[in-house]
């Protein structure tokens, strides 16, 4: 991004902020910047902002990390067994038709509201997606790779395992990173709905309970920044690890 563009965007963003801060009287819709900063300080001092942030961040990225290894394991398992049509249909049905919040509500009912339950929730929805993406990737793998490697290895299963685990993992991770915002949304929903007293979802719930629009805007701004940094870091890492599979 050129300096001129950054300058222009900054000016465009600054105009409404200045109007809200200095021209519009205090109202329940648009909080003043100074109130948002005050709320940030309040979150930090009275509501363990850092701990809440770390809890949510750990939940998301620990789930991603574990999902990566489970995806490799899944691909390895799928290389050994021929997938039945009903299993493929079921996986598709669960991944595309079952809303993740259903799973969330069930976990809220089944497990005590703690950080483990939200971790389990994010892990389950990540695995549902990864499972179906694995199946789709396997189905779309050009058969020529297998035809080439099978006579070399004299073993179709070994050829499949190598191709699936090494060739398809980037596709699956790409889809996972593209859904990064979705996982954050689901996590916030879970923290919000489970009545927990941790995580960014808790801060948002607190803001709504107190009907404090400054606190709400503060929570959402923090969330926006965390998602932006997280996604940029994931994309950077992905492009470093899989330079041949470009993620724009």
């Amino acid at each position: 991004m050129k300096l001129k563009q950054i300058l222009l965007i900054s000016i465009l963003a600054a105009i409404p902020l200045i109007i809200i801060e200095y021209l519009i009287p205090i109202n329940p819709y648009f909080p003043k910047i100074s109130s948002i900063i005050t709320s940030g300080t309040l979150f930090y001092q009275s509501y363990n902002l850092l701990v809440n942030l770390i809890t949510s961040i750990t939940t998301i990225y620990a789930s991603f990390f574990i999902t990566y290894f489970i995806a490799k394991l899944l691909l390895s398992v799928y290389s050994k067994y021929k997938m039945k049509e009903y299993y493929i249909s079921l996986s598709r049905l669960v991944a595309s038709s079952l809303p993740s919040i259903f799973i969330g509500f069930v976990i809220i009912m089944w497990m005590p509201g703690n950080s483990l339950s939200e971790f389990v929730f994010i892990l389950i929805i990540a695995l549902v997606q990864v499972n179906y993406d694995s199946i789709k990737s396997i189905q779309s793998l050009p058969k020529e790779y297998l035809e080439y490697l099978t006579p070399i290895l004299q073993n179709g299963t070994k050829a499949k395992k190598y191709l699936y685990v090494n060739g398809l993992i980037s596709n699956i991770l790409k889809k996972l990173i593209e859904s990064h915002k979705y996982f954050w949304t689901m996590l916030i929903f879970f923290e919000f709905a489970s009545g927990s007293d941790y995580g960014v979802g808790f801060l948002i719930r607190l803001s709504i309970e107190y009907w404090n629009v400054s606190m709400l805007f503060t929570s959402l701004t923090i969330l926006l920044v965390v998602i932006f940094i997280g996604e940029s870091a994931l994309r950077f890492l992905f492009n470093r690890l899989f330079p041949w599979s470009n993620l724009n």
Binding site: P142, E144, Y145, E147, Y148, L149, P151, N166, G167, S170, F242, W244, S245
Partner: peptide
């Protein structure tokens, strides 16, 4: 066997 389409591993 080398098939018609490219088979070198892009990764």
């Amino acid at each position: 066997f080398i098939p018609q389409k490219a088979t070198s591993f892009p990764w």
